[in-house]
């Protein structure tokens, strides 16, 4: 590392360009299609509701996208029977 490197400031425009390219590649692909996360949410909700009674608020679906891979996170909370007076006891 030369002494001059100390004075070099990392320029921000290349970072802006990369972030935009990644984001827009994703946004263009999903354009025109209905929102994937809300479709997943609805269908997962329907499947669970067939067997267990849960509230809409207990289901969290989120998508985190990366450059090469995206992760889908599904968080379902099923309250215990004691916490659900009207639940399917019996």
């Amino acid at each position: 590392m030369s002494i001059l490197d100390l004075f070099k400031r990392r320029t921000s425009a290349p970072v802006a360009r990369e972030r935009l390219q990644l984001l827009l590649a994703y946004e263009r692909r999903s354009r025109g299609q209905p929102d994937l996360v809300s479709i997943l949410r609805e269908e997962i909700m329907a499947v669970i509701a067939k067997h267990v009674q849960i509230d809409q608020d207990y289901l969290q679906v989120s998508m985190d996208r990366g450059a090469t891979m995206s992760t889908l996170e599904i968080d379902i909370q099923i309250p215990n029977k004691s916490a659900m007076p009207l639940a399917m006891a019996g």
Partner: peptide
């Protein structure tokens, strides 16, 4: 600012 790399360049905008 574009010359200093602080602002997206014209090429960046057009390419994107």
């Amino acid at each position: 600012r574009a010359a200093r790399g602080e602002m997206l360049s014209i090429d960046d905008v057009l390419e994107i």
